[in-house]
Write a protein that binds this DNA or RNA. Structure first.
Length: 601
DNA sequence: CCGTGGACGTA
DNA sequence: CGTACGTCCACGGC
């Protein structure tokens, strides 16, 4: 029904060094540098278009940084990732897919300040003035230095519209029983990419003094110089080494030495991981001191004073780079600790004066998503309950803990041993949902690529390529992956590498099964976040953190109740639109708080 | 100098 | 009860 609505006109927007160019139906105009912001606002108001950009980062960053709202977007890079899987989605990759050119031929951008070149120089421009190389690929500088004239920008805008048409056509065929579903995914993933720019712009509010105090508890006072830092560090180490007379020279940061140290006091372990050492904690003061030391060391090194100084700005906002999807299933990623802040530091995440956080997290999102993806009517029935495991337990004739373990084991586990009997009952009670999980597992084992509910490709098999590294480094230096799973290179070894499915059969099976659930959940989450973003904007609310199933909205105190209501309403409409049904219920736990730590667990 | 593995934080 | 990611550290090969 929403699809019957008249769709927004598509307007391509390309930014260049001197200005911008906008092209769409009845619109074809260069924007000189100083009118880009105002003109964007006018066209947005008058035509309410969907802005087609090579990526939100390339096409919209300056506008978002200025504080402009960018409501409807088609991010060619994000949509490319949905259709083709993986993470690499440079303009060159987008163009190659649109024209059916081999991904392997996409020229890499020149690598700054590195000696070695890898032959890209030989794919010279076919026409010195044109945007393409001799082999028909987009030249690597096409979106950076090349578009120095309005005419060149115009060519790139036209090409963007070409690519959009190709992508829209491809998306129609991805989900045969609902051709519009993948297009909706394209819209919300594009919105997520814009949201990432806003998250980078706004940052997460930090109570700096509280943060200093909390860091001090773990890492000691702030050192005045390097010698002082070394002294404090040695003092922290001595607390542990005092339990090991004669071995005070052990380097606690060297796992091999730590293992030898533990052996000397009779603790014989294969490795020194926390869960391995936990059983010895009560009986051995050295182990207890070591594990406590590790917690402090984590904060001292990763979330210490340096972290505070480098990533929390003068406006007391913690900032890092955000990505709308990772290289595997499609969850959002964030840098600089935004996604892995240790719980003891959470009291430092504090709303500004006169503001509060509306915090909301989705309850039991993955089993509910399983109900959608599998279209299991009996399992969907269970989602009507606030606590999905209660009706499942009733149906299995077991208690709740058993039902929960069985469901989790079915979704993530080895499907053997452990919850045996309950698992067998689960299979009988919900054969449709369990069938989907079994098929996903089999696909993974066989190396067949799979898709999430919304249509994102999860690559398995020889064409899988790892994501580009998150740390900034010269583009194009990404690892060698073959194109689109087309031809088989050397198959992956037995050792897993980032973004690549594991080499073992069972490993790939679990990967595929998990990716469908986790990736589909990520889609719902982003659809929710995009809806929340526009719903709280009139309340001066801003999303300041996305954490897989949790949202933190920063909002003026007197709008908090309205914002909280909007967050819940947004979930209902986003879930309805994403799932295409009312049969599966999604629930959020929403609260209004000043500090993140006030959230229940 | 760079890549790799251990360890651990989050979901 | 498995998957994913980001970060720091030490090591070892180059």
């Amino acid at each position: 029904m929403a699809d019957k609505a008249i769709e927004a006109p598509l307007v391509a927007l390309v930014l260049g060094p001197q200005g911008a160019y906008a092209a769409g139906p009845g619109l074809d105009e260069p924007w000189p540098r100083d009118v880009v912001g105002p003109r964007f606002g006018e066209v947005a108001r008058q035509r309410r278009p969907r802005w087609v950009v090579w990526s939100a980062s390339l096409g919209l960053r300056p506008l978002v940084t200025q504080g402009l709202a960018v409501p409807r977007v088609w991010d060619l890079a994000e949509v490319h990732r949905i259709i083709h899987g993986g993470w690499r989605a440079s303009p060159g990759h987008i163009w190659a897919a649109c024209r059916g050119l081999p991904e392997t031929g996409v020229p890499a951008p020149p690598r700054p300040r590195l000696a070695g070149f890898d032959g890209d120089l030989f794919d010279a421009a076919g026409d010195e003035d044109g945007p393409l190389t001799a082999s028909g690929h987009l030249r690597p500088d096409a979106l950076t230095t090349w578009p120095s004239t309005p005419d060149r920008l115009r060519q790139l805008a036209r090409m963007a519209l070409d690519c959009q048409a190709y992508q829209a056509d491809s998306l129609c065929r991805i989900v045969p029983d609902d051709p519009a579903r993948a297009r909706r995914t394209a819209w919300s993933e594009s919105a997520a990419a814009v949201l990432c720019l806003e998250l980078e712009r706004d940052g997460l509010p930090v109570d700096r003094l509280a943060a200093e105090d909390l860091i001090g508890v773990a890492a000691g006072r702030r050192p005045v110089d390097q010698d002082d830092a070394d002294r404090i560090r040695r003092a922290r180490d001595r607390v542990v080494l005092a339990h090991a007379p004669g071995r005070e020279r052990t380097d606690l940061r060297n796992p091999v030495q730590v293992r030898e140290l533990l052996a000397s006091v009779g603790v014989d372990v294969p490795n020194t991981r926390a869960h391995v050492l936990e059983p010895y904690r009560q009986t051995n003061p050295l182990v207890d001191a070591l594990l406590a030391w590790r917690k402090d060391e984590r904060i001292a090194t990763t979330y210490g004073y340096r972290w505070l100084d480098e990533h929390v700005g003068p406006d007391d906002r913690l900032r890092g780079a955000w990505a709308a999807c990772d290289g595997a299933a499609g969850r959002m990623t964030a840098q600089n600790g935004l996604h892995n802040l240790p719980a003891p530091l959470r009291p430092a995440i504090c709303a500004e004066a006169g503001h509060v956080f509306v915090r909301a997290d989705l309850g039991q999102i993955e089993p509910r998503v399983l109900a959608v993806v599998s279209a299991d009517r009996a399992f969907a029935e269970a989602t009507r309950s606030d606590d999905l495991y209660a009706p499942v337990a009733a149906r299995l004739g077991s208690d709740r803990p058993t039902a929960k373990v069985a469901v989790l084991a079915a979704m993530y586990g080895q499907r053997s041993g452990a919850a045996g009997e309950a698992l067998a009952q689960l299979e009988r009670a919900y054969p449709v949902a369990m069938g989907l999980l079994d098929r996903a597992y089999a696909d993974g084992v066989a190396g067949r690529s799979v898709r999430t509910f919304g249509g994102r490709l999860i690559r398995l098999g020889p064409g899988s390529a790892p994501p580009a590294p998150a740390t900034p480094r010269p583009a194009g230096s990404s690892t060698a992956g073959t194109a689109g799973g087309r031809f088989s290179g050397a198959s992956a070894g037995d050792v897993a590498s980032p973004g690549l499915p594991p080499g073992t059969d069972a490993g790939r099976g679990r990967f595929a099964r998990n990716a469908i659930i986790q990736g589909s959940a990520a889609e719902l989450f982003k659809a929710w976040a995009a809806t929340v973003r526009s719903a709280v904007a009139p309340l001066e609310g801003r999303i300041v953190l996305c954490l897989h199933d949790e949202l933190l909205v920063h909002v003026p105190e007197d709008r908090a109740a309205d914002a909280a209501a909007a967050v819940d309403t947004a979930l209902q409409s986003a879930a309805r639109l994403w799932s295409g049904t009312n049969a599966v219920r999604f629930v959020a736990d929403t609260s209004i708080i000043r500090r993140w730590s006030e959230a229940k667990p």
